[in-house]
Amino acid sequence: MARFTASQHAYINKRARHKEVGPAEGGGELNIIPFLDIIMNVLMFLLATIATVFTATIPVPAPSSSNRPGPAQQQERLNITVKVTPTGYIVGAGGGFLLPGCTTIGAASLTVPNRATGDAEGYTHDFPALTQCMQAIRRQWATEIASDHSINVATNSDIPYGVLVRSIDAVREARPNACRISDDLRGGDFSNADCLFPEVTLGVLR
């Protein structure tokens, strides 16, 4: 049988060697690595951004017209108002102001004073005490406000918006998700005992 000589072996290896395509010769194939890099970076950026943004909405309906019939108007309303001042909360009900403890109506006074130290966000307003005040109101006037979950929250002009939102939280419910707000944010199931005053209207103190 014929065998390859040394020179034939060299010739075969030389001809059969895989040619590496140089940068100048590679025009036929698209280099997708830079595109892939960009996509990876954009993808990572988007994933990192949306991971931190979980938002919700607090429904704040416009005040209803006084001549519109409603279930709450068929009975005597307590007209509960929370005034947010720089020194604390003044809670009004039934045409007067509630004294500390939120069970008796008296002369104008600070119902829930501020704490001496701020919380994690630096706010000195006592949100847990305001929630306890709202619970006391619901216990004290249980029959009068059985189906009335409306409240007016008014603030001084310079109160930070963050304090307003936390105050709305404090008057709305005693524990998270106690009020079952409907999907369209118009009403809901407020029968839970820990659901306090979820129908908030806003006002400003002059």
């Binding site: 943004v53 938002t55 919700a56 909405t57 607090i58 429904p59 966000e121 918006y161 963050g162 939102v165 936390r166 709305i168 939280d169 709305r172 419910e173 998270p176 998700n177 707000i181 999907d183 944010l185």
Partner: peptide, 19 residues
């Protein structure tokens, strides 16, 4: 929402879908 030094949203315990 482009949050930054000029826009920091408040936090709330409410659990509703964003509008």
């Amino acid at each position: 929402i482009p949050q930054g030094d000029d826009l920091r949203l408040p936090r709330s315990s409410i659990d509703t879908a964003p509008s």
